[in-house]
Design a protein around this nucleic acid. Structure first.
Length: 509
RNA sequence: GGCGGGGUAGCUCAGUUGGUUAGAGCGCGGGACUCAUAAGCCCGAGGUCAGUGGUUCGAUCCCACUUCCCGCUACCA
C-alpha cells in the first residue's frame, strides 16, 4: 500500500498583504511536506486564500472595486509568496473558485437535509464600529445610550434571520474525541484551552448572514450567505474534489493528516470543523496543530511600533534559506517566537556559514587538493569513523518520531549536533597530517563526505535550495533524495567524480 | 473573576517519571592547531533552576501559599 500524507496551511485572508505569520505557517508546512516526500510518501500539500466575508466586501468597496477583482489582486500576492518561499505545495485553492462553491454547497445541503441546520433568529447588542455582538453584561448605559464597556462604542439591538448549526448537540462527542485521541490537538497546552471551552458549554452556531452578500449563497435560500468559517474550512476537502468522494484525490488524502494553523484560529479548527464533519458523517482530520506567533523583539508586530519585518524584505536582504532555517530552528515550535535582524544574522553566521558552510568548504577543498575531487577508494572504517557515522542509523527511529509529533526543535537540534560533531571529527582526525597514510586519509575523507551527505539530506526539508546545492556535489538530485539513505554509511560510490561548489552561505558582516 | 500554561546562565531556550559537580547555542575570557568563509577544535568564567513553607534520607523537578508574565473565557477572522 502506498503511503499518503495530506497537510494543509490555513487559507489566508487577503484583506491585506502577506506578513511574517503567513510565511511562517507556510514554511513549517513545507518542512513537513518535504520531509514526508523524501520519506517515500505521496504528499498533498495545500495552501490558498479565504476570500469571502464582510471585511473583504468592505475593503473592495473602499477601493471602489468589484470584490472578485480585489481578491484576484491580493490572492496573487499570496500565490507569489508561495513561489518566493519555495513552497512545494501541490495546489493553491481560492474560496472564490467554482470547485469550492460546489463543495461548500454540497456540505450545506447534507447538513440541512440531516436536520443539523435550522432557520431561526439571531439577536443581540451589536456594535457596527467593532463589528461585534456583545452580551448584556458587556454593555452599559452612558448618556442615555447603550455602549460597549470595552470599546465604549455605541451598540444597537439587532435581530436578524439566520440559519443555525446544532453545535450544542456535539459537545459530548467532541469531548470524547479529545479524550480518546490525545494528540488530536497539539500542543497540549492549546488542547486544554479547547477542552475547557467545550466543557463550558456550546451554543448553536449561526452559520449564515443576511447583512452582506459577498460569499457563497445558501443553496435553498439565496437571501443568505454561508458563514465564512463553514465556507473556509471546507476548502480542505474542495481541493480533493469533494463532493466526488470516489475520485482518487479524495480517496487517497482525506482525512487530512495535519491541519497546521496559528493559535488564533484554533477554535474553528478544533471545535467547529470536527463538529461539521461529525454532523455530515465525514471522516475527521487526524491532527490540528496550533503554532505560535512570530514576534518582533518581544512585541507583536504592528505598524505603529514600526517593528514590522516583511518576509519579502528579509528574503531580499538575507536570502530565503536563512529565513527558513531561522524560523524552524530558533522558534520553539508551538510557542511564540522572536525574530530580529540581529538574531537572524547571528544565526546565519554561526550555524550556516561558520558551521555547516565551512564544513563543506574545508572538506571539499581538501578532497580537491588530495584526491582531485573523487570519492576515495579503499575505505577502512575505524571506531572513530563508525561512532559518528552511526549516529544517523542509531537515531533514525527517533527522528521519524520527532516528525510525527511535530517536534521540529528536536529534529533541528539533532542536525546541529551532527554539524558540530562533523567539524570536530575533521579536526580531531587531522587529515592534513596523514598524507603519508593514504588508507587512513582516504577513510577520513570518505567519512567526512558521508557526513556532509547525511546532514544535507536532513536539511533538505529545512533549506531546500542550499541542501540541493550540497547534494549536487554527489550528483544527488531532488528526486533521488531518500531519507533512509542516511542509515547507509557507504552510499557514496568509490572513485566517483564529485563536483565542487562555491561558498554555500556568505557571512553577514 | 474562572480555567490553563509559564518564570532555569548576559541573551534564546532544552531538561529533570525526585538522587552524586543543572545543560546547549549565541555572547565573553584564555589556549593549542592550520584543511577551511581569521572558519573549526580545546579549556574557562557565569545560575541560591521566581520567593516562602511543606512532604521526603534527599526537590530545580511533588504539594500549598505568594508574586510576576502569558493564553482561553464563542459568532471580526
Amino acid at each position: 500500500m502506498s503511503k499518503n500524507y495530506y497537510i494543509t496551511t490555513p487559507i489566508y485572508y487577503p484583506s491585506a498583504k502577506p506578513h511574517m505569520g503567513h510565511a511562517y505557517s507556510s514554511i513549517v508546512a513545507d518542512f513537513f511536506a518535504r520531509f514526508k516526500r523524501i520519506d517515500g510518501y505521496n504528499v498533498f500539500y495545500l495552501t490558498g486564500t479565504d476570500e469571502h466575508g464582510l471585511k473583504i466586501q468592505k475593503a473592495a468597496e473602499g477601493k471602489n472595486q468589484d470584490p472578485l477583482d480585489f481578491c484576484n489582486e491580493i490572492s496573487k500576492t499570496f500565490k507569489d509568496l508561495s513561489e518566493t518561499l519555495n513552497l512545494s505545495n501541490t495546489d493553491f485553492i481560492r474560496t472564490t473558485e467554482k470547485r469550492h462553491h460546489k463543495s461548500v454547497q454540497n456540505l450545506w445541503n447534507i447538513l440541512e437535509k440531516k436536520g443539523e441546520i435550522y432557520l431561526s433568529k439571531y439577536s443581540g447588542w451589536y456594535s457596527i464600529s467593532d463589528e461585534a455582538f456583545y452580551l448584556e453584561d458587556d454593555i452599559e448605559e452612558k448618556n442615555g445610550s447603550k455602549v460597549a464597556k470595552l470599546s465604549g462604542s455605541s451598540v444597537e439591538w439587532i435581530e436578524e434571520e439566520s440559519y443555525f448549526f446544532k453545535l450544542s448537540k456535539w459537545e459530548d462527542k467532541l469531548l470524547e474525541l479529545y479524550e480518546n485521541n490525545k494528540k488530536f490537538i497539539l500542543p497540549k497546552s492549546r488542547k486544554n484551552e479547547v477542552v475547557s471551552f467545550v466543557k463550558s458549554g456550546l451554543k448553536d452556531l449561526s452559520v449564515s448572514r443576511k447583512s452582506f452578500s459577498w460569499g457563497i449563497k445558501v443553496p435553498t435560500n439565496n437571501d443568505h450567505v454561508i458563514y465564512v468559517w463553514l465556507d473556509a474550512l471546507t476548502n480542505y476537502m474542495s481541493a480533493l474534489n469533494y463532493p466526488d468522494t470516489k475520485n482518487s484525490l479524495y480517496k487517497n488524502f482525506w482525512p487530512a493528516d495535519l491541519h497546521l494553523i496559528g493559535k488564533d484560529i484554533l477554535r474553528f479548527h478544533a471545535v467547529y470543523w470536527p463538529a461539521f464533519l461529525l454532523a455530515a458523517d465525514l471522516p475527521l482530520p487526524k491532527r490540528i496543530y496550533g503554532h505560535g506567533w512570530i514576534l518582533s523583539g518581544d512585541e507583536k508586530m504592528s505598524k505603529s511600533k514600526g517593528n514590522i519585518l516583511d518576509p519579502l524584505e528579509i528574503i531580499n536582504e538575507y536570502g530565503l534559506d536563512p529565513l527558513r532555517y531561522y524560523l524552524l530552528k530558533e522558534v520553539s515550535f508551538g510557542n511564540d517566537g522572536n525574530i530580529s535582524k540581529d538574531k537572524l544574522i547571528s544565526c546565519i553566521n554561526s550555524d550556516l556559514a561558520n558551521n555547516f558552510g565551512n564544513l563543506c568548504q574545508r572538506v571539499l577543498t581538501f578532497t580537491e587538493k588530495n584526491l582531485s575531487l573523487t570519492v576515495p577508494n579503499k575505505v577502512n572504517f575505524l571506531d572513530d569513523d563508525l561512532n559518528i557515522l552511526n549516529n544517523f542509523s542509531n537515531n533514525y527511529d527517533k527522528l521519524m518520531d520527532y516528525i510525527d509529533n511535530q517536534n521540529i526543535n528536536s529534529y533541528m537540534n539533532f542536525i546541529v549536533d551532527q554539524m558540530f560533531l562533523a567539524n570536530k571529527y575533521f579536526n580531531d582526525q587531522e587529515p592534513w597530517k596523514k598524507k603519508n597514510d593514504f588508507k587512513r586519509l582516504n577513510t577520513i575523507i570518505y567519512t567526512s563526505l558521508e557526513l556532509i551527505r547525511k546532514i544535507a539530506i536532513l536539511l533538505y526539508p529545512v533549506i531546500p535550495y542550499s541542501s540541493l546545492k550540497v547534494l549536487n556535489i554527489f550528483n544527488i538530485n531532488e528526486k533521488k533524495i531518500k531519507v533512509d539513505t542516511i542509515k547507509n554509511n557507504q552510499y557514496l560510490e568509490n572513485g566517483m567524480k564529485i563536483n565542487k561548489i562555491n561558498i554555500l552561505f556568505n557571512k553577514v558582516e
